[in-house]
Design a protein around this nucleic acid. Structure first.
Length: 226
DNA sequence: GCGACAG
DNA sequence: ATCTTGTCGC
């Protein structure tokens, strides 16, 4: 898919702040999606002592969740890990990978937060706004927010609250297993995001999209074929 | 000032 | 994120 990766990426939090403030106003948290035929998962890993960032994208058919296409790219790591600024570290290489796709997904599930972020501009929002596609933030752990106790059964969820605002949901994707932190990234509502995450999680804790991306990002090095 | 802190 | 084998529990 055609993507225009910004020609300037900040390398410090100080330089990233104005960009965050400018782009967060473009985030849409209402449903603006097409019928979903393809869902993609993205994940970033690191090589050579974190000096190289590697992104993997997996496109699955929906709702049957069968792998349709994959792409992997690498580029030098230029931004440190700073809570609240993860997108500036991972989005550049993710855009490189998305550019290699021949299929344009209708929805992307990200490994990180959406609006469940101190500035309401997590990784999923940043990516969604730059490519103008619906995105969901499905993180494995919490960045900010509080919530009530969550029942152990799959499908149960509680709103994630920060400063009196609902910023996402803590979702039990599998019975008796640690929950997922789901929040809108771009062009999707929280309710719809929860619904799609559950539909992409038929068996394990993580969505099939994320599991495929994780798998590809790690093993593709010595076994490019399988 | 202290503690928390996506990946 | 990443380094890494087996092991306990549903």
């Amino acid at each position: 898919m055609k993507i225009q990766n910004p020609d300037f990426w900040p390398e410090t939090a100080e330089a990233a702040i104005p960009i965050q403030e400018q782009l967060k106003s473009l985030v849409v948290t209402t449903d603006k999606l097409e019928s979903i035929q393809y869902v993609a998962g993205v994940d970033v890993g690191f090589l050579d002592n974190y000096t190289i960032s590697q992104a993997a994208v997996a496109v699955l058919s929906f709702p049957d969740l069968q792998l349709q296409e994959q792409a992997i790219t690498q580029r030098p790591t230029t931004f440190p890990y700073i809570p609240g600024f993860l997108s500036f570290r991972e989005v550049p290489v993710i855009l490189d990978a998305l550019e290699k796709l021949t299929i344009t997904p209708n929805l992307i599930i990200c490994d990180g937060q959406g609006i469940a972020h101190p500035k309401r501009f997590g990784l999923a929002c940043h990516l969604g706004v730059l490519i103008n596609l619906p995105t969901i933030g499905a993180a494995k752990s919490r960045l900010i927010g509080t919530h009530q106790e969550l029942p152990a059964e799959k499908g149960s969820w509680k709103p994630l609250i920060d400063r009196g605002e609902v910023i996402g949901a803590v979702l039990r994707s599998r019975t008796n297993v640690k929950p997922l932190y789901v929040s809108p990234g771009h062009r999707i509502s929280l309710e719809t995001a929860i619904n799609y995450v559950l539909q992409c999680t038929p068996k394990y804790r993580l969505p099939e999209t994320t599991r495929w991306a994780d798998y590809l990002a790690s093993k593709s090095n010595d076994n490019p074929s399988t």
